[in-house]
């Protein structure tokens, strides 16, 4: 599945999609940045409620396919601009992380 395909699902909304054709191979949920960086695998989705600029650095370095901001978290406009510039896909959902994970499982991840 690609990030574009995922973002077309009714539960998810694209916020920034600079790399829509990236493959998605799994998912990781976490809000402590170092913890996520130590455990999230490349080419996976990262589900989090954090939306500050450091999330972009972690997403870039961990090489995740996309960041899914759960619980309806909305980033500031400068974060969205920075995500586009840095090539990081951002997706939002009103679902909590657990609910979003259930949808991902149903989609075959």
């Amino acid at each position: 599945m690609t990030v574009r395909e995922l973002a077309s699902h009714p539960d998810f909304s694209p916020i920034a999609m600079p790399n829509p054709d990236r493959e998605v191979k799994g998912a990781y949920i976490g809000d402590l940045l170092s913890w996520v960086m130590g455990r999230a695998k490349a080419d996976t989705l990262w589900l989090t409620i954090m939306s500050n600029v450091n999330v972009l650095a972690v997403a870039s370095l961990a090489d995740v396919s996309a960041v899914i901001l759960t619980e309806g978290v909305t980033p500031e406009s400068d974060i969205i601009t920075a995500a586009s510039e840095k090539g990081i896909n951002l997706i939002s959902t009103s679902l909590p992380s657990y609910g979003a994970a259930r949808v991902l499982v149903a989609l075959g991840l």
């Binding site: 402590l32 940045l33 170092s34 960086m37 130590g38 450091n54 999330v55």
Partner: peptide
Amino acid sequence: SLGFGAGMGLPNMKKY
């Protein structure tokens, strides 16, 4: 509150 301070910094540096 920024998502840091998990006490994983140095352990991650060693791990990687």
